[in-house]
């Protein structure tokens, strides 16, 4: 007799399982969680803290806040950041000072760990939110973060 009760119980569990998927089938239009990606670029908004790419913000006078202290270069685990600096005569005070010439950032090697942004004492670099970074030519992934002709914002070193 347990033969028949086994069959009956088995079929009952199968039918309740089918009811779960059946319920999702009926609600499929509302419940579909697919986002149709390339079509929804205008409305797509990432979170504020999303780690896309490291950028150096410049204000309207083309000035940035990077003093060339190299703390980000030391904090980076795999050498993604290279700073090219030079000791030059500062035009305002007349003394020799470390000034940054190029802040090179290899996007292809970056692991998005965030240690450089934590280490920076002047908040010169921050996260941007773009994630579509694929390119056809790998050498364009080596970015120079400070724009040509820009200089240090006054008052940052204090």
């Amino acid at each position: 007799m347990s033969y028949f009760s086994d069959i009956y119980n088995g079929i009952k569990t199968l039918l309740t399982g089918m009811s779960v998927t059946g319920k999702y089938f009926l609600h499929s239009q509302k419940g579909a969680i697919t986002q149709q990606y390339p079509d929804n670029r205008e409305t797509l908004k990432m979170f504020d803290r999303f780690r896309g790419e490291v950028v150096m913000p410049h204000d309207e006078n083309n000035e940035h806040r990077c003093t060339g202290c190299q703390k980000c270069e030391l904090a980076c685990p795999n050498g993604t950041i290279e700073i090219i600096w030079d000791r030059q005569v500062d035009p305002e005070t007349g003394k020799k000072k470390k000034m940054i010439e190029k802040h090179i950032y290899h996007l292809g090697m970056c692991t998005m760990c965030g240690l450089c942004i934590e280490a920076c004492p002047t908040d010169a670099i921050k996260w941007a939110q773009n994630f579509e970074n694929s390119v056809y030519d790998r050498t364009t992934l080596t970015r120079v973060l400070n724009k040509p002709g820009s200089k240090l914002m006054p008052g940052v070193e204090d």
Partner: peptide, 21 residues
């Protein structure tokens, strides 16, 4: 996780001494 830490899978949110932010 993305809203708090910034990344979905490899979060790197803890540092020795506490949290990153």
């Amino acid at each position: 996780f993305e809203e708090t830490c910034g990344a979905r899978l490899t979060m790197n949110y803890n540092i020795p001494g506490g949290l990153m932010f």
